[in-house]
């Protein structure tokens, strides 16, 4: 394989035979590789996702590389960092691209640290300015965008790809090429004593989400949000103050420091529309806002808005959603 490729790095398989965000980052990677006049490669750590060969073809991936090792069976950070650094050392890539998740947030910057190379998280796009890769990234929870010029051999870039619309082409499937990396010396330094209990469907994958905010007034009223979510066949979410005040579990927090969602429908009730909340829901296809304050920022993002009292509207919405 040619050196200097732009390499998209993934592990795991969550949705439709692919890791979440893989297509979006392949889409960004294809553009960047073309700008740089180099190849796009896809590095899979651990088991090969079932749809990888086909998907690789559709995004013009020149090389689908796979590192298989017992230590990558259920990939943990130390093995991932070691494997990524080893492949980078051998292949001299031009850039390593990641989809930003909580897991990649703990891996990508360590790879950059180990390689001594630049790192930028929260990327929304990557372009070329002369010889330099420039990454536009979200800052202040989304209130601003910062354009970073990254120098050095192999910048490590993670993208919040939920606003990217991937455009697959129609190339032929690419066969995976096995890479061997020596991970014998790698010991996970952090031991999982009690794994996170996966509790039902996750907000990240939900098609319909109804979220409540501080405008609900009291924790008792949150059950109306749960009822409306159920009536619409979706999941309930929340803004951060509800989590901070212990009304709901932190796994229900939508936003910059919570879940990043991309549902078909997001209904925000009694939520002001702070950038840090919008970071987790602005990619919704249709956003509905219900707020007492006609000037609330949330209406700027909404397709449909209702100015009114959440507590009066919720019972009626539950009724109307239930009626056929």
């Amino acid at each position: 394989m040619s050196q200097n490729a732009v390499i998209v790095c993934t592990w795991g398989e969550d949705q439709d035979g692919l890791p979440v965000g893989a297509e979006e980052v392949l889409h960004i990677g294809r553009g960047l590789a073309a700008d740089l006049g180099t190849d796009l490669a896809w590095l899979v750590l651990g088991a090969l996702p079932s749809a990888a060969p086909e998907t690789a073809g559709r995004y013009g991936v020149a090389n689908l590389l796979q590192v298989e090792d017992a230590k990558l069976e259920s990939p943990q950070p130390d093995a991932l960092v070691a494997a990524l650094a080893a492949v980078a050392g051998e292949r001299s890539p031009r850039a390593l691209l990641f989809h930003q998740t909580q897991a990649s947030r703990a891996v990508a910057p360590r790879v950059a640290g180990r390689l001594g190379d630049a790192v930028v998280m929260n990327g929304v796009s990557a372009d070329l300015s002369g010889e330099c890769i420039v990454v536009t990234a979200s800052a202040y929870g989304g209130d601003t965008r910062v354009v970073y010029e990254v120098s050095g051999r192999c910048p490590v870039i993670a993208f919040i790809a939920n606003a990217v619309v991937p455009e697959p082409g129609d190339g032929a499937a690419v066969a995976a090429e096995a890479l061997s990396v020596d991970l014998t010396g790698v010991e996970e330094r952090v031991k999982i004593v009690e794994p996170a209990r996966f509790e039902g469907p996750r907000l990240d994958d939900a098609e319909i989400i109804v979220s409540g905010g501080r405008g609900l007034g009291s924790s008792d009223n949150y059950k109306l949000i749960e009822q409306l979510a159920a009536a619409l066949g979706g999941l309930p979410g929340a803004s951060r103050p509800l989590v901070d005040d212990g009304w709901v579990d932190s796994s229900q927090q939508v936003g910059l420091t919570g879940r990043i969602t991309r549902p078909n429908l997001y209904v925000a009730i009694g939520i002001s529309g702070a950038s840090q909340h919008m970071a987790g829901c602005s990619a919704a296809k249709t956003l509905v806002a219900i707020n007492r304050d006609a000037e609330a920022a949330i209406f700027q993002y909404a397709k449909y808005g209702i100015v009114g009292d959440a507590l009066e509207l919720l019972p009626e919405l539950i009724r109307a959603a239930g009626a056929r």
């Binding site: 910062v146 354009v147 120098s151 993002y301 397709k303 449909y304 808005g305 919405l317």
Partner: peptide, 30 residues
């Protein structure tokens, strides 16, 4: 330095919300 900020800007939000009208909570919900 490996990373330098060349620019910062405030992204534009589109803002074309259709405000629903109705003379009661029930009408708005419907």
């Amino acid at each position: 330095p490996r990373v330098s900020v060349t620019r910062q800007f405030v992204p534009e939000v589109q803002g074309n919300c259709e405000m629903l009208q109705g003379d009661s909570p029930a009408a708005l919900a419907d």
